[in-house]
Amino acid sequence: MAKQKTACLADIIGLLNRLCPPDLAEDWDNVGLQVGDPKAKIEKILVCLDAEDIAIEEAGRRGAQLVISHHPLIFKPLKRLSPIDMTGRVLFRAIKQDIAVVSAHTNLDRAADGLNDWLAERLGVTEVLPLEAPLSGNFYKLVVYVPRGHEDEVRDAILASGAGRIGAYDRVSFSSQGVGTFRGDQDTNAFIGNPGELVATDEVRLETIVSAALLNKAVSRMLKAHPYEEVAYDLIPLANERSDVGLGRIGQLDEAVSFQQFAEQVKEALGISSLKIVGDLGRKISRVAVCGGTGMSMFSAALRQGADCLVTGDVKFHEAQRAKAEGVALLDAGHFATEHIMVMELSKRLRNILSQQNFAIEVIEMTAERDPLVFF
């Protein structure tokens, strides 16, 4: 059995970015590192919904050096850093206890196998697709020419950056063989051939897909692994749309049930005792849309795609009126309940990817979080 490796904060952020790429986040969002030294050694991670005082306290008590939260600790630029307000207080405590905070928010909401997929699965919704219109892929095709016999080393370096991911598949690449020609001047130190000599050599064309967010990293690793002094490579912008990512999900129940029965199923699945509803309890529900957190921005998409019901949180009065008028059932299960499932689900995936990378890191789930809104 291979010896387990130690990891620093930068390693963990890189692995988290594979699960929920930061380029999926909304422009207004602040995902990724909130506070901490990227070189800090990480041995234990606490996963939570909110990086509040109690999260930092629990992390310190249980020996975690990193807190990964869903909601970002810092949403807006800080004009001051002081413990007199909530954000400053948490930052002060985290810094004093040498605890880093990283957040995965709307990038986790949009990701393939992300929060909204987990919510749909929890509620028994299958055959799911994103509610949001397909996103521009913001991808590049990376093509590089490698002398035969060195292609595996270069390919592994590129794919280790996170390139080569399409939906649920990773390490996606293609290779073909050909003959490359070149001639260097007297100042060159060619890997093959001599200065002033025309060289024809067997080469392999490697190509893969890489997101814009990972492009610099992929190219840097490729250049480092490549044996040539001057590397011939192409970066080709792609117009591919991504149908596997986006806000919200819509799909089917295994069989149609009454709205009342479905509401009871949702309460049981999310572990809540009450919820708010709009619609006739006797109507049949089969096509269900979900959007964790504050998801009424996806109502028009749910209506357009034929949803019988939308499950979300934070529904406002006039939004409820519109749903009633449009004949779409609404089920407000609350912001907390529709998002808190990320603690368990993200923890599972982190344990899996850390194990694959052979990192000696424990992932623990926060136990003290509660919905701040309760029915009296």
Rank of each mutant, 00 (worst) to 15 (best):
E255W: 01
R304K: 15
A301V: 07
M296P: 00
E268N: 12
E264Y: 11
E268Y: 02
F299W: 12
S297R: 11
G279L: 02
G293M: 13
Q305W: 14
A256Q: 12
Q260N: 10
F259C: 02
V315F: 03
A269G: 10
A302Q: 15
R304G: 02
D254N: 06
S300W: 09
G295I: 13
A256C: 09
V288E: 06
A256N: 01
C309Q: 02
S300D: 15
V266R: 05
E264G: 14
V311M: 07
V315D: 02
G306A: 11
E264S: 11
A263M: 05
A301F: 10
S274C: 06
Q305F: 15
K267C: 10
F262K: 04
L270V: 11
A301C: 12
L253K: 05
Q252D: 06
T312I: 08
S297V: 10
V257G: 05
F259R: 03
A307H: 14
A256Y: 10
E255D: 05
V266M: 05
F262Y: 15
G313F: 01
A302D: 05
K276H: 11
D254S: 12
L270P: 03
K267G: 02
G306N: 15
G279T: 08
K284Y: 04
F262N: 03
G293I: 14
Q265S: 13
K276L: 06
M298I: 09
A302Y: 05
V266N: 09
G271V: 05
V315C: 12
G306L: 15
F259T: 00
V290M: 09
G313I: 10
I272W: 01
Q252S: 12
V290T: 05
K284V: 08
A302W: 14
K276C: 01
S300K: 13
Q261P: 04
A289R: 11
I272C: 09
L281S: 11
G279H: 06
F262G: 13
F299L: 13
A269R: 00
G313K: 12
G295C: 02
S274A: 01
R283D: 01
D308T: 05
M296F: 09
G282V: 05
C291I: 04
Q265K: 04
T294R: 13
L281P: 00
A307C: 13
C309H: 01
A289W: 10
L303W: 13
M298H: 05
L270I: 04
E264T: 07
